[in-house]
């Protein structure tokens, strides 16, 4: 894939990505580039399609049109002579392996312990020997402050703990790009801090590209390189958090921020 030398290949490049559910257009020819290591916070009213941005990057929804490149490789298309053709499952899996996602409702595997949740993909997808995978799992649980809970089932953990296990599980696949879909929205207020703390740690390492959909504006201001205001399937405006959150150009952004901060 040709690129100019001055410009690094974006970790995520979305071009004219469209997605509709029936008559409801949630992504309308969206263009979005995310640089390697960049932390982009996506905000916008509910129903604006911001979660769908993450879901099409994770192949949980197929876009109706447009292209998505991960590290310069097309996610849904593969080379066919001079052009592109729809990618086969094998190609999609290969490109997708660079992406990880953390969900609003954790989606931990309830029949496995915390450690088994984290070690599953390294063992089954990456073919790592079991003892190595469990050691990796313990290290990652340690990183999220849950080493002592390695043998607990998700049903025995609090919401905040579950979400931290889910983050460790995603980290275990060593993704270049991590997608965070309202990861604190389902938590009791007093548990939000522990999850944001883990996100902050990942952000500080600076190696992982992060796309976060969140309503935590304080957190966005702290970790984001860029905030994207999304509305009606398109980017309404974007910019550094200080500018966008304090001096937005659009009235709609202003009223959205007022509503979020008031709550």
């Amino acid at each position: 894939m040709p690129t100019t030398a001055s410009e690094p290949i974006p970790a995520v490049r979305m071009r004219k990505v469209s997605k509709a559910f029936g008559d409801n257009v949630v992504l309308n020819e969206l263009d979005l580039d995310v640089a390697p290591g960049e932390r982009v916070v996506i905000i916008g009213p509910s129903g604006s399609g911001k979660t769908t941005i993450l879901r099409v990057c994770m192949t949980l929804e197929r876009p109706d049109a447009g292209t998505i490149d991960i590290n310069g490789e097309s996610l849904y298309h593969e080379p066919d002579g001079d052009g592109l053709k729809p990618a086969r499952e094998k190609h999609i899996r290969q490109v997708r392996s660079r992406v990880g996602m953390v969900f609003q409702h954790f989606n931990l595997f309830p029949h496995m312990s915390a450690l088994e949740n984290v070690a599953l993909a390294p063992i089954k997808v990456h073919g790592m020997p079991k003892d190595e995978a469990y050691e990796l799992g313990r290290q990652l649980l340690d990183k999220v402050g849950l080493r002592a809970h390695a043998n607990h089932a998700p049903g025995q953990l609090s919401g905040g703990q579950k979400q931290r296990v889910a983050i460790a599980r995603s980290l275990a696949t060593d993704p270049d790009v991590m997608l965070f879909d309202e990861v604190t929205s389902a938590l009791d207020p007093e548990l939000v801090g522990e999850v944001l703390g883990v996100l902050r740690d990942i952000a500080e390492e600076g190696t992982t590209t992060m796309m976060l959909v969140t309503h935590e504006m304080g957190f966005a201001k702290e970790v984001a390189d860029r905030v994207v205001m999304f509305d009606h399937g398109r980017i309404l405006e974007e910019g550094p958090p200080d500018q966008l959150l304090h001096e937005p150009a659009h009235d709609r952004t202003r009223s959205f921020l007022r509503a979020v901060l008031a709550h």
Binding site: R96, M101, N107
Partner: peptide, 19 residues
């Protein structure tokens, strides 16, 4: 959500079913 988590971990369809 269990299927979606499996996809995000890049399990194959067969692995998702089995595990």
């Amino acid at each position: 959500g269990q299927t979606e988590a499996s996809i995000s971990l890049n399990l194959t369809d067969a692995q998702r079913l089995r595990y």
